[in-house]
Design a protein around this nucleic acid. Structure first.
Lengths: 132, 132
DNA sequence: ATTCTTGCAAAACGTTTGCAATCCG
DNA sequence: CGGATTGCAAACGTTTTGCAAGAAT
């Protein structure tokens, strides 16, 4: 995917830091915290810059900001709607596809009058190799 | 509910700070952040103490720790399994009862081999009075 | 040329910790 | 009495911000 075009479409200037960050997140796939991102980006962007880029990319929906109850944020490249399976033993994070809450959100609208715009759903447990 | 008994059952000493905090959270009902709790507790407990109490009460399942993507934790008194409807306009938080994910968690186990132990689910949108 | 973006350093914010004093059982 | 709990202050990790320099359109 052409990162330059992606950025232009969102009205953002093309900079090496932004392209590097997008490339990196795309290649990684799973949600990472900022310390890790800065480390792996290896000098290509200052920490403050990383925060600023992640912030603006999140607002432009190119990146997804998540919380896993760790007291910090994680970021991943935007993809099809999915949730995460977080292994509380080894820390591995895998994706689980699908948006199966639509039915329930309609129910909420009907019964409570609350109009759901988005939701946050993550699963915690044990991955296959950590069960025994 | 008798807070002293509750604490004793969990092997915790009865202190004025703990009882005050439990009373307060029970009376409030919805999830609050620590600053708010300390404020409303009005001198009945230091901030560090509040953190420590919330920590231990969370571990003992008397209190529930939540994250709403705000970069901080919120705490509520433990009640029946439920999720939250968070109005992104006025900030009001209401409960929505029910644990309807069991079916999907079984599916996850069957298809992915991942054993779900707990989940995190919150809904964001507009409450009845903020739609127009 | 003008506006946007970056690096650096400092600050802000939420949370945790060390230690001595105090309280509970 | 002895161990658990607390207050205070300091430390910590994460995130944000001010400002001057630099880069993109």
């Amino acid at each position: 995917m052409d990162k330059q075009k992606l950025l232009q479409e969102k009205g953002l200037k093309t900079t090496t830091a932004r392209v590097a960050l997008l490339d990196f997140l795309e290649q990684e796939g799973s949600p990472l915290d900022v310390v890790t991102i800065v480390e792996k980006l290896h000098q290509q962007a200052d920490q403050a810059t990383v925060y600023r880029i992640l912030d603006i990319l999140t607002k432009k929906d190119l990146v997804n900001r998540l919380e896993f109850g760790e007291g910090k944020y994680r970021y991943e490249i935007q993809k099809n709607h999915h949730h995460h399976l977080i292994c509380t033993n080894c820390g591995t994070i895998s994706d689980v596809p699908g948006d199966f809450l639509g039915k329930f959100e309609k129910e909420i609208k009907d019964k409570k009058g609350f109009l759901v715009k988005s939701h946050l759903l993550e699963f915690f447990g044990l991955c296959r190799s950590c069960q025994s």
